[in-house]
Amino acid sequence: MIELTGPILAVSAALAIYFLLRPGRGWLERWRRRLRLSDRVLSEDALKHLYHCEYEQRVATVQSLSGALGTPVEKVAGLVQRIEAGELATSEGASLRLTPKGREYALRIIRAHRLWERYLSEETGLKEPDWHKRAEQQEHRLTSSEADALAARMGNPPFDPHGDPIPTQRGQLPPRRGQPLTSLEVGERARIAHLEDEPEAVYAQLVAEGLHPLMVVQLTHLSAERICFWAEGEEHVLAPIVAANVAVVPLPREQPVEESLESLAVLEPGEEATVVGLSPNCRGLERRRLMDLGLLPGTVVTAEMRSPVGDPTAFRIRGALIALRGQQAANIRISSRRQVA
């Protein structure tokens, strides 16, 4: 028998050392790079926080920073020192402020973040909960020129899917729109301008409620414990602290109130209805396709037949017979549902 234990051990040891120390791509090198990267990620996230505070006219402090980053105050102090040393921010007493250089840096990160969210929402099949998470990572990886190329390819979109403006190549942003949902009066109607995507847990709750920018809401109840409102035919109940993360633009009162809108999904074969609009929830390729087919406000749609297994349903839309899945039909709001004469 030939004894191979010795040589095998020697070869494995040599290989292990090679992979660990390989110049440029060794594990040791990668680990150190990741450490450095996480330092950069932390300071970029800090700059973003400072920028958001500035935009919303709040005061940023070491404490608020520690809360936003989920990092202990002691560690944040070191971080702030590094940022100040890089001339990206200055402190006046307890409050922290961005320098022009820091603001430019922050806007570049925000631009990358919002562009990536826009990209994910319009051109991929990924669903809402994934956008923010992925963009949080991608914002640190995209270089400015990559971000510009992405923007150009998508037609320099002015807004991200949450309704936030995307900073331009030169770092311009329009002034902030909207007021918190909680500032409305009972009975008042407003259009959602923006959903704050941080903190994540609150955002997830808003998404789960099915809220989207451009949705029209009407307040029905407001108290210290809860806030109730109608949106697209459904009543939503939120805790005020959650609702404060929804920014709205009030609508003039005189417009007629459309209460309890139904969706196309409720239409039974033999019934027709008038389309009121597509829910903002329906976006990207899907939205464009539905509009191309003529599903627009004012279109009269007749349900003709249902698949033998219950879904999809075929609708007569502007003369053509088009099958839509229940899920799609639920995104199309209708009114004046009636039997076909």
Partner: peptide
Amino acid sequence: LLKGEASAFSLELPP
């Protein structure tokens, strides 16, 4: 694998 690919359903029933 294909989670991120764009998707939109449409099915026209021609005459």
